[in-house]
């Protein structure tokens, strides 16, 4: 019984990691006022890029860097369209998703089904990794798992305790006031959107070079859309991202565990989406709840400099 619990928890952490990385990225982006519905596409391009680079060079770290870079470029396009051209963010994000899924399918075709010679290595600390139960649960994952935790803590600290974080939040909450403080609003938004895209690309890299060690079309399997939901579920807080990502990761795992018990896997697959709706509904029930949700005030609205 203990074995099963440990195995479920271990796999929960693994399944939650890509969600965590990409959700942290979307939180950065949305805190600056830019919603990026392109996550699914950016993740997919990140996955194929990391796979191709790792496959060619044999170095999964280079694969990760390439995925982050391409994620920044692709979300930079979303930034250009929605920040500089002030176009509709919903449509732009959807376009990025379509483009990303298309590009990854086109360029990834020769690599479908090929096994990766070397995946991202696992942490193996002599002594720690050998502790019964805890060793397997906490100290025997690949590097992405630990990096995602560190990145989450850094983003939490940055948003909460540094002037950079205050700048980012003020741009999303009240860009006019931010600008009167001498902040270059659009530059901050570009930074946030591209950093967010880099994390989505990294999440994709995790899927192809650590989680599965192969590339196929549809590898992201809707995770990008879950991330959009998780960002709200987390109430735009990095702490909430941890909770949500591991919770939803757990649901992924349970889906397969509960199937033999006669519970329909399809009904279980609805859980992440249904629970997001439920959370939104509970908050929406009261006006004070809507306030507590604390969505960035100008989320989704284009900002025009100097307009009154």
């Amino acid at each position: 019984m203990l074995d099963i619990i440990v195995s479920v928890l271990t796999r929960t952490i693994i399944a939650g990691t890509p969600l965590l990385l990409a959700t942290l990225g979307e939180i950065l982006s949305e805190r600056s006022g830019i919603q990026n519905l392109g996550v699914e596409g950016v993740m997919s391009v990140g996955a194929v890029t990391a796979f191709i680079v790792t496959f060619t060079t044999g170095n999964p770290w280079l694969g990760m860097l390439a995925a982050i870079l391409i994620g920044m470029i692709l979300s930079g396009i979303h930034g250009f369209v929605s920040i500089s051209l002030r176009a509709n963010q919903v449509v732009s994000g959807l376009a990025i998703t379509m483009l990303g899924l298309g590009l990854s399918g086109l360029f990834g075709k020769p690599y479908i089904g090929r096994p990766l010679p070397n995946r991202m290595p696992r942490l193996n600390i002599h002594g720690l990794s050998d502790i019964p139960i805890l060793g397997g649960l906490l100290f025997n994952h690949d590097w992405y798992v630990y990096l995602s935790v560190v990145i989450g803590i850094v983003i939490w600290f940055m948003l909460k305790h540094t002037s950079m974080g205050i700048t980012l939040r003020s741009v999303g909450e009240n860009p006019k006031a931010a600008e009167s403080q001498g902040i270059n609003v659009n530059r901050v938004k570009y930074f946030a959107v591209m950093a967010g895209g880099g994390l989505a690309g990294m999440a994709g890299a995790y899927l192809s070079t650590a989680y599965s060690g192969s590339w196929n079309e549809g590898i992201t399997a809707g995770r990008g859309w879950i991330v959009i939901a998780l960002t709200i579920f987390a109430l735009w807080q990095p702490g909430g991202a941890f909770l949500g990502a591991y919770l939803f990761g757990g649901i992924f795992v349970l889906q397969y565990m509960l199937q033999p018990l006669g519970i329909s896997p399809n009904l279980l697959s609805m859980l992440p989406y249904a629970s997001t709706l439920l959370v939104l509904f509970i908050y929406g029930m009261s006006k004070s709840g809507q306030r507590r949700m604390n969505a960035p005030a100008t989320l989704g609205e284009p900002y025009v400099r100097g307009e009154r």
Binding site: L85, L94, M98, L99, G100, G102, L103, G105, L106, E217
Partner: peptide, 23 residues
């Protein structure tokens, strides 16, 4: 022999340039 995803490249690209055109 091009993959099915090629259509997505078309769709995504055209949509991006359409909203750019709106500007």
């Amino acid at each position: 022999g091009m993959p099915a995803a090629t259509v997505n490249v078309f769709n995504g690209m055209i949509l991006i340039f359409l909203i750019m055109g709106d500007f």
